[in-house]
Simulated scan of single mutants.
Amino acid sequence: MPNATDDTEPDSTTVPWTPPRPAEIPALHTSLRAWLGHPFFFKVTIDALDAGQGTIIPAAANPLEAAVILHQEETRRLGSAELYAVDEEMTAQALAAGARLPDWSVQPADLPAEQGFLVFDSPIGHSEATDGLIAPIVACSWGPSPHCSPPAGAVWLTFWSAPVLDRLVQAGIEAGLDPVEAQREVKRGSPPLVWDDEALVCWSAGEPDIPTTPRYIPSEEVSGVIAKERTLPWIQTVLAAWLLIQEPAIVEITEQRASRPERRRAERAGRPLPPVRVVSIHRRVSTATRPAEPSGRTVNVRFRVRGFWRDQPYGKGRALRKRTWIPEHWRGPEDAPVLIRPRVTVVEAPPEPAD
C-alpha cells in the first residue's frame, strides 16, 4: 500500500487508466480477491509496512502478522461486497457533491450496502506511485474491520489505484519479448488494481480527526475520521457517491453480469460471479430546470445554480432529516435573459517527484 504525499491533478507522467466495462468488473473483483492471497502481493504489503507506509496499522508483532490481518480482512470485505460501476458523468457529480458536503456525519443508512466495491470511470484523486509517476485513484472498497471496531461502530475504506503497467511492458520488450507477448505477460503477472491507502470513518463523525503521526494503531477510543489529509477529498467523493446512489430522482441503476462463458467458468470453479450495478445520472437531471420556490421576490433573469445539499424532512410529522443533493440547475423563466456569472477554478500544481 504505497502512500503519496499529496492529492493532485494529473500531469504528463500520470499512470494511464482505461476503466473496465461494467461486465468486466465481476472478473476484476474476483481477480483482486485472488491477488490478495498471492505471495507477491503479501510481499508488497510487508515491505510497505516495514518501510513505515500505511495509515491504519494492526497491533501486531511484526509486518508479516500485520499484513496477514490486513489481507484477510480485505478478502472478507470483498467476498461479501456488492459491486458498483460509476460512469464518468456520475463520477463528476460525486466529485462536485463531495466537495460541498457540509460536514462528516455518516450513519449506516447512508451506505448503499454494508460491504461494497465501487469502480469509477474516471479518477477521484491521484497519488505518487513508483518512480515518481502519478497513479490515479479509481476504486474504493468498504466494510467492517474486526481489528478496528470502536464501540459506536465505523466503516473501513480501502482506496485502489491503477497499476503501473507501461514501464513493466517496456522492460519486457527490452528483455527480448515482442510487444504483444510483453503485454500479455504483464497483464497475467500483475494485479488489476493496487492497494493505495485506507481510512476509517466512525458513525456520526464530525470534524475529521487526522492522526498527528504518519501511522495509526487502532484503539477503542477512536472517533471521527482516521485518515491522511491527502485522502480526505477521496473520502468525501465516496460519501457523496453513497448518498447519490440512493437518490432515484437523480441516478438510475441498471444491472449487468459478466459474459456467459465467464460465468460458466466461474461456476465450474465454485466461484460464481456477482452482478454489478451500473450507476448513471438520470437523463432528465442533466438538463433540468427546477421550478422557482416561493421567495417573495420576482426573478426576471435566467441563471445557473450550483449543486448543493439540503436536509430534506421526512417521516412522521416530517421530524426526520435526510441529506439530499440538489444538482446544478437553471433557475428563472425559460424566456428570460441569461445572467452569466464568472467562475474561477483553482487547480493545484502536481507534486514534485520524490528524490
Rank of each mutant, 00 (worst) to 15 (best):
T30H: 14
T30M: 10
T30A: 13
A34E: 15
W35D: 02
H38F: 11
P39F: 12
F40T: 15
F40N: 13
F41V: 12
F41C: 05
F42R: 15
F42T: 15
K43F: 09
V44R: 10
V44S: 06
V44G: 02
A48S: 08
A48D: 07
L49R: 11
L49V: 05
L49A: 09
D50R: 13
D50Y: 11
D50S: 14
D50K: 09
A51R: 12
A51K: 12
G52L: 04
Q53W: 09
G54A: 05
T55V: 12
I56S: 02
I56V: 14
I56W: 07
A59T: 06
N62V: 01
N62G: 07
P63G: 13
L64C: 13
E65F: 08
A66P: 11
A66C: 05
A66V: 07
A67W: 13
A67H: 05
I69G: 00
L70F: 06
H71S: 13
E73V: 14
E73Y: 09
E74A: 04
T75D: 14
T75Y: 14
T75N: 14
R76H: 14
R76G: 09
R77S: 05
S80K: 07
S80I: 00
S80W: 10
S80H: 11
A81I: 02
A81G: 03
E82T: 10
E82P: 00
L83T: 03
Y84A: 06
A85S: 14
V86C: 02
V86E: 03
V86Y: 01
E89S: 13
E89T: 12
M90K: 07
T91G: 05
T91V: 04
A92W: 06
L95K: 05
A96C: 08
A97E: 01
A97W: 00
G98S: 07
R100M: 06
